[in-house]
Amino acid sequence: MSGNSWSRAEIAGRLAQDIPDGAYMNLGIGLPTLVSNYLPSDREIILHTENGMLGMGPEAQPGEIDPDLINAGKIAVTELPGASYFHHGDSFGMMRGGHLDLCVLGAFQVSQTGDLANWSTGAPDAIPAVGGAMDLAIGAKQVYVMMELATKGGVSKLVDTCTYPITGIGCVDRLYTDRAIFELGARGATVTELVGDTTLNELRELTGLALEYSLAQEYKGITS
């Protein structure tokens, strides 16, 4: 940690601490993939990949690459004991049907009430692609987003209302950033953890939101 912000690895490491033992979890393409490097070794966490697998293991090393075994990012991966394979209908039924405990996604913007924008910047010349983003956003019992709180230009990505095309409405439960952790909901964003010497006033100034501080609620996705 440098002063008042976390690196991407530190955000991933902090988020990993909040994943409960026994969770079935999907990690989105890109930044969320980092979380898999920090899963607590004393907890059994089953990774889902939407192209049709539960029990996904680490990325394949040279010599063990199997073209029939890839993750959603089309990277060669490995299988762990207890893994299973299924077709896309079942895989997205698992998601949409609320069977996954947790999903971690990246974002361009998140609104204080949990709207997510992560599939398109709306740029007119961009080649569109959505993949499983909309299914993941509304499917898992809990949706966590990890991202830097501000753009490189210093503009907050936690906003009152998303200006980018949305992926899902009111679907993000928690937001893990380099400056703070937030709980999101119908009543707006609450700061639950400040990074380093970051202050609530700094965050209010950056986001333009009337943020309050509160201790994090207990994770409530696991019913067993």
């Binding site: 896309h88 997205f92 949409r96 993949g131 499983g132």
Partner: peptide
Amino acid sequence: YRAGEIELELVPQGNLAERIR
């Protein structure tokens, strides 16, 4: 796509799977 020479219907992946199913 940029040249307008192919039509695209973009469908969320789970909706694509379920529509096929």
